[in-house]
Write a protein that binds this DNA or RNA. Structure first.
Lengths: 131, 131
DNA sequence: AATAAAGCCTAGTAAATTAGTAGGAGATTG
DNA sequence: CAATCTCCTACTAATTTACTAGGCTTTATT
């Protein structure tokens, strides 16, 4: 039940982009330096976030990354589901589980899954970086 | 953010013991066979649960395991914290984090941690196995 | 008292996952 | 056209997880 560093760094990167939303795009080298993450690793995370249309990227010289929408329109749940394999806590929640019927644990995992997701969906990226 | 099989099997074992609470102790070989888990692996999980005083064990021939308290007095949170390393979702929640102050992600993890724990503490083992 | 049936303990190993590296190809700007 | 950037994919190292193994201790039964 530990969060992956993908999720930890990924959310940090999103916070960073939220703080720079008004300013404009930030290049990978800049971000990596500011966040103190290896360029190559951060690049992968941003790639995932871009493919999920949470960030936009512009290529070429003076290119970089920006949030694709207003930080207040992005929920933390959205972000983490992208970075953390859908936030599925046990495989049988998505794959279908043979034990599903004869054990009461399945219901626990299902409820916990729902709880986590709905909780994280109530928080927006905007709200957590303001202050 | 996947649950370990330790937690999955461990909770199953606890449900099993809850169902047999009135009946009495169940031996490891019996449990392992019924739950379809290797004896040796299950033994380790039960060892952990015993050390946390969630189950009682009696040694020697015709010995075995029972819940240490009424299933309604054991919360799922209690059980999972024992099996899942305190349910700490990121290390900095317990170790102290250098980034704690300059990033807003720490608060997210903290709130999520609290949410998960308080949710799981509202469910008792008794309530999930009844019916 | 002997034996068998249990739990206890700890070390070790194999498999899987995660974290991080590397390098080159394609775009864009000045 | 050169510099600066993103994009893509394969690979490797490190860590964690899941599981196995074996010997010791305790207790009930005969």
């Amino acid at each position: 039940m530990k969060l992956s560093s993908k999720a930890r760094y990924g959310l940090k990167a999103m916070c960073y982009l939220a703080n720079n939303y008004e300013i404009g795009t930030k290049s990978l080298p800049t971000m990596a330096a500011d966040l103190d993450i290896s360029e190559k690793y951060l690049e992968q995370l941003l790639g995932v976030l871009r493919k999920s249309t949470l960030v936009d990227a512009t290529r070429g010289a003076s290119g970089g990354y920006v949030l694709a929408k207003n930080p207040y329109d992005i929920s933390i749940g959205e972000i983490l589901r992208v970075l953390e394999d859908g936030l599925v806590i046990v495989d049988c929640l998505q794959g279908g589980c043979s034990n599903q019927c004869n054990c009461s644990t399945y219901d626990v995992w299902k409820k916990l899954y729902k709880e986590i997701n709905s909780f994280l969906d109530t928080m927006s990226l905007g709200s957590i970086v303001e202050k």
